[in-house]
């Protein structure tokens, strides 16, 4: 008969690594946004330098997942836990890359002054940081309600993105000198909006884990 011990240890490892990844991604986004608001290229470079660690954890999660499938043959809920963990890890890895993109925008603006104080972008980043921690919590608690809440949060982020887009488009129309920076800020808004999409994907993985249904929350 199957011994659960190895499988349980492995499932706990996956959980711990995902929590760790989630915290690191949340931190990376917060720091990248702060670096952009203050145009602090040095702080931005730290975000870029921290990213390989996220990639490393993702690889480790893949390895543990593959090992569990090969040696422990998880089935039913256990199997869905492993599959969900693998998908969530790859979402988190992509989120980390997008946080790096935000940081790189700050680096590219080194030495410039902001065309306007940033208000909506930091607000958006804060909302998305909360989505990241909620998505990980919904996984840990296997909480479907919280997972579905991702879809609503994502709508709010999309709305804010629309607002930022209109504002920046208006500024570019009025003054061609701000086009360069406005484009960069618009990209940043887009990166953050994409991070929210990945958080929503995590919500989908959690719904799959609990119900085995694959909803489209995006």
């Amino acid at each position: 008969m199957v011994t659960r011990r190895e499988l349980d240890i492995g499932l706990n490892q996956l959980q711990d690594m995902l929590v760790d990844m989630g915290k690191k991604v949340e931190k990376a986004l917060g720091e990248a946004m702060a670096a952009l608001s203050n145009l602090d290229a040095q702080a931005a470079r730290k975000v870029v330098e921290a990213d390989p660690e996220l990639n490393r954890i993702e690889e480790q999660i893949s390895e543990v997942g593959a090992r569990l499938i090969a040696t422990q043959q998880p089935v039913a809920t256990d199997l869905r836990r492993v599959l969900a963990a693998l998908r969530i890890a790859s979402d988190l890895e992509r989120m980390g890359d997008l946080a790096v993109d935000v940081a790189k925008a700050a680096i590219r603006m080194e030495g410039q002054t902001l065309i306007k104080p940033l208000i909506d972008l930091p607000l958006m980043a804060e909302m998305v940081q909360e989505m990241i921690s909620d998505s990980i919590r919904s996984f840990l608690e296997e909480n479907v309600d919280l997972a579905y809440k991702m879809a609503k949060d994502d709508d709010q982020v999309d709305e804010l993105f629309g607002k930022i887009f209109r504002e920046l488009a208006g500024m570019m129309a009025e003054d061609p000198k701000v086009i360069n920076q406005s484009m960069l800020l618009l990209f940043v808004a887009r990166y953050i909006e994409r991070i929210a999409d990945h958080a929503t994907n995590i919500g989908e993985s959690v719904v799959y884990l609990v119900t085995s249904k694959r909803p489209d929350l995006n």
């Binding site: 008969m1 199957v2 011994t3 089935v75 039913a76 256990d78 199997l79 869905r80």
Partner: peptide, 20 residues
Amino acid sequence: KIFTNPSQRSTDDYISGRFG
């Protein structure tokens, strides 16, 4: 279906090695 998403808790427990 049985091995990915059984509808009964006891099936899940058995095939996952929680008893038996």
